[in-house]
Write a protein that binds this DNA or RNA. Structure first.
Lengths: 203, 203
DNA sequence: CCTATCTTGGACTAGTCGTTCCAAGATAGG
DNA sequence: CCTATCTTGGAACGACTAGTCCAAGATAGG
């Protein structure tokens, strides 16, 4: 058997995700990737292909490692409205403070960036949206079972609303929006979705 | 008096706005600007300065010529909820069909693009957000005077919500989101804000 | 140990980036 | 018409871009 890779493609891809996530894919050059990963250009191109494929791979990785676990936890959370409120509180907190403060979301950022028309990228954006919205729908259905929801509320449309709201939090937080401002905007939506007769215990 | 400009800086800047708006500022080179405007590099740099200043000028121009008139009309509209619903219907329509379909919003796109940390750019983003939210607040206050609003609704927080929603529509539409999907998401929020006892006449 | 086969470092290419510069051209007051 | 002053076209700049290529190095089956 011939030579084998002298590095772990998995950890390299994680480093690339961080690079593209923080600084934007457009403004990150292959030279930056080489410096950050410690790989040579040869290994990089042999393993991932060109920059476009590397970007698509980073998007897929972000969706699976960053987004998916959170979406799955939300979808499995049976608490109803408190689960949704908790999701947004954690989201705002992660976007405004800590290690990834002001980085936004790699997938959200991809909506405005170049390469959004590439089939591979479009597929990830669509998959991300489906996963986010269906997690929201599941959480809303749990809320409905608890009687938390206003009567006549359209679950499908409301799930879309909450997904849109998450994108907006990701976007605005990247440009320095204050956490309190974002949380107030989220709270107003959740209040509008909540059954007025059983509001108290869900705050 | 010496020589005067052989072109109109105003129409040139409008052409630059279109370029940055459609294709993104990061991926649009000075060569593209030269080609689109017909100007020479000399005239461009003498009139607007470097690419960064040109981008900032384009952002300001977009805010004043594209956003501001719509925001002002919304703020002055006394109809209440129908005014807000109309704003979003026109927004979704403009983002998904017609001349600027799938272009998104230049200011919204700027949130994810490079140069968002430049003071001049940040100032435009902040001004845009203030203008959008205060127009939403004015429209909500009109809605309150008409008795359209749910009792206990926080006008300031709800204005922030509607602003966030507009950003999300701009962002998602750029990546091909369907108009019906976006409208449903908007409708769910407006329904949540509306007084249930006087819902019928506002649809 | 040998060798076929893959990986690696890094030089290299062709093109593009934003920016500068200057001679030639245009303008309008005197 | 003359000339001071600005504008304009376009050549040129160094730095950077994504991507290619090959000799040297590493690996593990035979």
């Amino acid at each position: 058997m011939p030579d084998v890779k002298h590095f772990d493609p998995d950890v390299a891809l994680d480093q690339v995700v961080s690079l593209f996530w923080e600084h934007g894919a457009d403004t990150t050059g292959v030279a930056d990737v080489v410096k950050a990963t410690g790989l040579s250009r040869s290994s990089l191109y042999a393993t991932f292909g060109g920059k476009g494929q590397l970007y698509a791979a980073a998007l897929r990785r972000y969706l699976e490692r960053q987004s998916r676990p959170v979406f799955d936890a939300l979808a499995a959370d049976e608490r109803g409205m408190p689960a949704i409120a908790g999701f947004f509180e954690r989201l705002v907190s992660a976007r405004c403070t800590g290690e990834h403060a002001r980085w936004g979301c790699l997938v959200t950022n991809a909506h405005a960036a170049a390469g959004r028309e590439l089939p591979e990228v479009q597929h990830v954006l669509a998959a991300h949206h489906r996963a986010l919205r269906s997690a929201m729908r599941a959480a809303l259905e749990a809320a409905r079972r608890h009687g938390h929801l206003r009567s006549g509320l359209d679950t499908e449309a409301s799930a879309e609303t909450l997904a849109l709201l998450a994108y907006a939090v990701n976007l605005r937080s990247r440009s320095g929006a204050e956490a309190a401002e974002l949380l107030a905007g989220v709270r107003a939506v959740l209040d509008g979705f909540t059954d007025v007769t059983t509001t108290e215990e869900n705050r």
